[in-house]
Design a protein around this nucleic acid. Sequence first.
RNA 1: UGGGGUAUAGCCAAGUUGGUAAGGCAGCGGGUUUUGAUCCCGCGAUUCGUUGGUUCGAGUCCAGCUACCCCAGCCA
Length: 555
Amino acid sequence: MAETEHRPTNFVRQIIDKDLQSGLHNSIKTRFPPEPNGFLHIGHAKSICLNFGLANDYQGTCNLRFDDTNPEKENIDYVNAIKADVNWLGFTWDGDERYSSDYFEQLYGYALELIDKGLAYVDFSTQEQMREMRGTLKEPGTNSPYRDTPIAENHKLFEAMRAGEYKEGECCLRAKIDMTSPFMCMRDPVLYRIKFAHHHQTGDQWCIYPMYDFTHCISDALEHITHSLCTLEFQDNRRLYDWVIENISAPAVPRQYEFSRLNLEYTVLSKRKLIQLVDEHHVAGWDDPRMPTIAGLKRRGYTPASIREFCLRIGVTKMDNLVEMGMLEACIRDDLNVNAPRAMAVLDPIKVVIENYPVDQSETLVAPNHPNDESKGNREISFSREVWIEADDFREQANKKFKRLVLGKEVRLRNSYVIKAERFEQDQDGKVTTVYCSYDAETLGKDPADGRKVKGVIHWVDAASGVPAQINLYDRLFNVPNPAGAEDFVSTINPNSLQVVNGIVEASLTNAETGVAYQFERTGYFCADPDSSAEQLIFNRTVGLRDTWGRTEGA
RNA sequence: UGGGGUAUAGCCAAGUUGGUAAGGCAGCGGGUUUUGAUCCCGCGAUUCGUUGGUUCGAGUCCAGCUACCCCAGCCA
């Protein structure tokens, strides 16, 4: 798809333009810094597109850095999934992926530097004591009794922490800043804590791990990141970011800028909540097609280009937002409308028997793969005496607004003949099972010679060659626009977010490649599910077609 | 008077030396159409959270007010 030619401007670009013009920087370097404690989601895609997009547009580079300072929550599977997702989105990071843990030794050295400057101390207060001494939002905190431990002793104490001489929670390293600061994060923040945990990158090498605020800014400096972009909740932390950089022998001075995180209607985008959905089996896994994860969107049938386009359209600002799902759907429809070959599939089949068509005859028809793009070629579809049509496409009686098959009336079978409904059969519940029709043999590829107008066109699948398929129809995962705002977001889960249907697809779809999109004419965009253990074809509906009829009809 | 942020159409979002409100999504009309799809054409803010002020002129400058978001993890 043709992505928007020139990127819309935003405040980050303006800052970069200024920094380039003023000569502050000759080129830019950004980074995408996920913690490997879960799968990436569409919100991360916003950050990825921003960081990698900026690097591309300004001919700079972008690093992929795993912010792996909390081994208890992280693992290598997430690292691998994240790398795959970033690549799948179409981005390439500069050199090898980095890890904050690559810098543990240097970070340790900077911590020692702060200690030696009298700007950090080892605190043996309990967590509860620290909380009490921190004060509140409106009241200043009070100094720790360990705050004035002599420098030399702090130096030894910290070395002892590293050597494993203290238990978890027994002590921690804190920056000596200002317990009365209006910024809570400046009230002597913890820099290092003790964790006897195995780390996916450094193994058992360390028993002390640096905190985010100490690690991130230094990692940025070590990588010579020029513009460090993060989300709004880190605005206060910027004071600490700058404090650390100013007080150590930093090799560079990176700057942090914050933008608002993405909120999408009818889903949740917080790692904690997504983990809960997976752990409590509200969904089948991280790549469940209903999940807003990159892996889920991929399995659902979203393309990398459509997600990039979405990120372009939503923009980058500091305003809180809640983007409509329709925005995302418009992006994938725009992509698939021009790129997806058409095919026919019936989701809720009823039989049509064409009584004046020879019993043992069948013929091969040619159908274009795309109505507006001849270059996509044609395919062959078979036609015979019995075909399946959509149950919704037949009514015993209806007004002229209903442009489908009605008893005694004609309708065009897409890419085929005009048929007329003569009579029908239904089961004991009143559901129509079979419609007996006649066909006009002179209407293949042309209108009736006598000038009869046949307005309706419906899709169908040849009964003799059609293939049964499981079709997964997805709906929003939650019943409310902003589940994150609910008291209990789990209670707002939509119990009908997945509807499994047994349909019939045209024979050409038998070998549909996993993940490759098709438009099933008149019903939507679908792609084959990767589930290889399944015994039959499985198609996932990515998104339906825009449906103005369904709207008026339903109303 | 804790501090940090944000307020432009239903949603997203341009608007940067003050000069008379881009664009996209959604919606609504109309046209084309063997997908009620696509495509094409047309329609939306006398108004920029609010109240005042400065000015010939303010979304853009100033002051006050209001609403919403974030911060009291040895999480990120």
